[in-house]
Amino acid sequence: MIDCIYTENLCKEYGSVKAINNLNLSVRKGEIFGFLGPNGAGKTTTIRVLTTLTRPTSGRVSVGGYDVVTEPAKVKKEIGVVQQHLSLDRDLTALENMEFHARIQHLSSSERKKRIAELLEYIELADCANQLIDALSGGMKKKVAIACSLLHAPKLLFLDEPTVGLDAQTRRRLWDFVRRLNKDGTTIFLTTHYIEEAEVLCDRVGIMHHGQLIAVDTPTGLREKVGSTVVEILTDNKETHYQFFANREAANDYVKGLSSEAKTVIIRESNLEDVFIEQTGEKVGDQ
């Protein structure tokens, strides 16, 4: 497998704050890689470094086989980026936004016409092409932003918190869309603080905490490392304790031996939130 993204001891500091702390990461060609972590964990800063927007303080970083610091122009040709904030021009229509992105990606007039028509069909928004951006729904805007990032057919697509602010139904539609893109050959690097998104969408997940990568594996692999079954115990003083077990039988045996102090006991399959709790002692949503 070829590494699409490779970082070695990558650091980014803002004064005394280490936004990225010795990040060693490799993302393989063709996979959907998810960066999971709470707000402020360093996910967006990492994307900004990988996409040439922010200069790293130290360490090595290459994207698409090119060094981000010394060969930014080559990196820019390899990547498409959808930022967390909707970075479309609200004074323009969906079509005009796409036209602008096609122009700054150096597509010729005929290429522009062809790719825009193709992508409008692909995102199923051909009928809304001439509407101003603000007239579109949140999900439609996100699709237009993704289409803009795909105009030059990038090999690697960065999605920073792609489903923030979207309702559950739109979120699931967007996941299908991302899967389709990946199936069509685009490597996806996405950040999220939604546990479910990382679990159902990503081939591999990296968990970020205070600028450090604390675990990387497939969602199943990460869950198995902490234990596939979890016992959640709510005590009288309203604290929740977690115990992890390799299987349900072991969890059942543990529950039988619990004292009466345990007010409520839940046995369930573990998820990536549990992995985060086990690794950091905090919930993703606590940050």
Partner: peptide, 9 residues
Amino acid sequence: SFDELLMSP
């Protein structure tokens, strides 16, 4: 949206 220009060639 200015970032889009910075990330372009």
